[in-house]
Structure formats: C-alpha cells, structure tokens
Design a protein around this nucleic acid. Structure first.
Length: 215
DNA sequence: ACATTAATTGTGT
DNA sequence: ACACAATTAATGT
C-alpha cells in the first residue's frame, strides 16, 4: 500500500450518505487513513493479518479465493460505499485473511484501524448496523457465487460474468483477455476462447483483441 | 514504413 | 490439457 494521504474534505459528504451520525462521521474522518490506488493493486493478501477495515469510496475491488498453487477464483466485488465482510469477521478475532483483494480499476478508499471496532460497535448504533448490513449482504453474494460455481455450466457462468462486469464497470466494452477471464472463473483459456466464440456467433458479443464488446 | 518480437487468440488432437 | 498455428499489437530501426 503506497500513497497514503490525509483525508480530503470531499470524503465527508460521502460518509454522510452512509451515516447520519455526525459524531461517527467526524471520528472516521479523524481516525481513518485515505488511499488512492491505481488499477491492479493488491490490497489484501491471503494469510496477511487484517489491521484495518476498508470502506470503498469510489472504484471497484474484486475479492478472490486463492489456493496454494496460485489458482484463483472470483468471489464477489466491493463497490461504492461498501466494505468487506471478510475483513469485518477477521477483525473480530484478529485473524488472518482467507481471501485476496485487488483493485479492478483506480480506486479511492479509506481504512479504519481495527482497534476502533469494539469501541465503535457499542458507541455508534449506525456503525453496528453498517457492519451487520455489509456482513449479510456479502454473505449473500458469497452464496450466489457458490450456487453459480456448483450448479451452472461454464457457458452460463461466462455470460453472467460478462454481464455482471459490464454493469459494474458501467461500460459495454470490457478490456480483458481470455486468459484473465479464465483465471477468474478458474478454468482454462481454451475453454473461454471457444465459449466466447459461440457467444459471438449467437450475436451476443463482439470479439476484439484485448477487448469484448457487449451487444 | 518496414521488420522483429511478444502477446493473444484459434484449432486439432 | 497440450502443442502449435495464426493473428494482432507493440517496439525498434
């Protein structure tokens, strides 16, 4: 994590969208660290100790599972004013991260040091609510991911992946290679290439080098 | 503008 | 899954 900076004033109105309690907002402004991260920055490594919980202000972060030989699989995304359930649950028992988190696009976020967790949970209702809400929402995302991986065929997973990503990035053009998609869906590049070709023949998408256009 | 190289994509087994 | 061919983009001269 490079570029740590003092929190710009522009963050305050964002936090006020999330919390009504001005004391809480003020305390976050005081205690949190602010980061502007470029694309493809690893925020959390597997087995790293979680020392702060992130709140995404702007951008997109993907959360992945990774095994010992580096095989990855996409779990869910963090966007807008959301946080990561994994960090929250790790924070409770000062544990290691079981997931890897990486920025998908240039991202602005703040990190709240975990030592404030207990204190804030009792002091601010809204903080407790925030923690509960993000935990349950990310748990549901996780169940969706499990369903998809367990029950859906690869062609459906691919289409869902493309549509989801297009929506999250708010763009009908995705700059991505077949290999990168294969990594995220945990399959081989050839499979993705062939399925993409099928989708193109069906008129769902248009293929270019390093680029997929949604139709 | 052209040649070279590297990366990405396509295809058969 | 592997091997290799074909194509495209990037880079140097």
């Amino acid at each position: 994590m490079n570029t740590k900076e003092s929190i710009p004033e522009s963050v305050q109105p964002l936090l006020k969208k999330l919390f009504n309690d001005n004391d809480l907002v003020a305390e976050i402004m005081e205690k949190a660290a602010y980061y502007e991260l470029p694309e493809d920055t690893v925020i959390v490594e597997i087995d790293s100790y979680i020392k702060s919980i992130p709140i995404v202000l702007d951008g997109l972060i993907k959360v992945m599972r990774e095994d010992e030989d580096g095989n990855e699989i996409l779990l869910y995304y963090l966007q807008d004013l959301s946080s990561c359930a994994m960090s929250l649950s790790c924070c409770m028992n000062y544990g290691k991260s079981k997931v890897k988190a990486i920025t998908e696009v240039p991202t602005k976020l703040i990190r709240v040091p975990i030592e404030h967790m207990d204190d804030w949970m009792t002091k601010y209702r809204e903080w407790r609510g925030f923690v509960v809400d993000t935990s349950s929402s990310k748990f549901e995302s996780l169940l969706d991911a499990v369903d998809t991986i367990a029950f859906k065929k690869m062609d459906e997973r691919l289409m869902q992946y493309l549509e989801n990503k297009s929506e999250l990035l708010d763009s009908s053009v995705l700059n991505i290679t077949h290999q990168e998609i294969a990594n995220e869906l945990s399959t081989s590049r050839e499979v993705i290439s062939r399925l993409l070709k099928q989708l193109e023949n069906l008129g769902e998408i248009k293929l270019h080098r390093n680029k997929i256009e949604m139709l």
